[in-house]
């Protein structure tokens, strides 16, 4: 494998201290990511996918949140490094784009100024005119038409898709090794979503960067990711290649998600496959496997013991489920072929 590991997360746990009690937002999450590859993280609201992302940027408040484990980016552990070191890593090694491009931009500054600022922070000896030239180049790369004129316009003068392109330009201006994309297309229309996904793919090839793509949309995962983490209740419940997730899903929650999507995309009018109940409260997670109250296959052991991740099948998948291998594989095949 010529691609080096650029991001290595080990046993990441994040607990928020709130007046109502401790919220275990992320529990024991580990993964490696190589340059040029895309890791998808999929899960429902409250599954811990966004907190995982913000931990990589060390954006969690250190007073209200306890974070443990390690996050190595280019040899630096962002969880223990001092603030100066983290500032260097943020932006130049790892950058982030968000769901809502309007609130990610400052309405009082021109987009050119905001992009150049990100560049100047990491290149303090560069003149402003040089920074402007780099900015203009970046605007062209992200596909802003007529960049010479639009560089001096304000965020409100751009459409949603164009704003997301600006945010991507800010993120990529320092050529980071890792791009964290937290629901980057959720706020956009489908035709614009397709444009932005294509753009991210092109830029990934050009810069050979690694992307962590967080989304709730399995369609987006299927189009863009190489490997996938499925999260539920703050834990990784399945880790697999994107092909394996869709052809041989190994966790009952993944079966439910795929079932819901597949029954929606089939042309029949019958009742949709659903997952009963709703996602758990992170303050009072169910004992044992946190999916057990919604799982049709749950037994006594599921209610007492947290299942550990183990390898299963021939496609390199890893799952956290107490069911025997044979049963998982046969049900998984059934779900995928429905």
């Amino acid at each position: 494998m010529s691609n080096e590991v650029v991001l290595s997360v080990k046993n990441l746990s994040v607990v928020f201290h709130t007046p109502d009690g401790d919220v275990a937002a992320v529990s024991d999450v580990s993964f490696d990511l190589r340059s040029g590859e895309t890791l998808g993280i999929v899960g429902e609201s409250g599954s811990g996918k966004s907190v995982t992302a913000s931990s990589i940027m060390r954006l969690n408040n250190s007073v209200t949140a306890s974070t443990s484990g390690s996050i190595l980016i280019s040899g630096v552990d962002v969880l223990t490094a001092d603030e100066i070191e983290v500032r260097r890593v943020r932006g130049s090694e790892v950058a982030m784009i968000f769901q809502d491009p309007l609130s990610a931009l400052n309405p009082y500054y021109t987009v050119g100024k905001q992009i150049a600022e990100a560049y100047l922070v990491h290149h303090p000896h560069v003149s402003k005119s040089e920074a402007r030239a780099v900015t203009l180049e970046m605007l062209k790369k992200v596909g802003i038409p007529n960049p010479e004129k639009r560089i001096d316009e304000f965020p409100h003068q751009f459409s949603g898709g164009m704003r997301q392109r600006i945010v991507i330009a800010i993120a990529l201006i320092n050529n980071p090794k890792v791009l964290i994309a937290d629901e980057p297309t959720t706020a956009l229309d489908v035709t614009v979503q397709a444009q932005i996904l294509d753009l991210m793919k092109e830029l990934q090839a050009e810069f050979n960067m690694a992307i962590v793509l967080i989304t709730h949309d399995l369609g987006v995962i299927a189009e863009a990711a190489k490997d996938v983490l499925v999260m539920y209740g703050g834990r990784v419940v399945e880790r697999s290649t994107v092909e394996a997730l869709f052809s041989e899903p190994t966790h009952p929650y993944a079966w439910g998600l795929l079932g819901a999507v597949n029954s929606l995309s089939s042309s029949g009018r019958g009742a949709l496959a659903t997952i009963a109940g709703s996602p758990p409260s992170l303050i009072a997670l169910p004992s044992g496997c946190s999916f057990n109250p919604r799982c049709a296959y749950a037994s006594d052991v599921c209610r007492t013991e947290v299942p550990l991740l183990r390898s299963i099948g021939l496609q390199g998948s890893v799952t956290a489920c107490h069911l025997p291998d044979v049963e998982i594989l046969s049900i998984g095949h059934g779900v995928a072929s429905r």
Partner: peptide, 10 residues
């Protein structure tokens, strides 16, 4: 433009 939930059609 709708993403298809099927990686083999990518």
């Amino acid at each position: 433009a709708v993403p298809v939930a099927n990686p083999s059609m990518r």
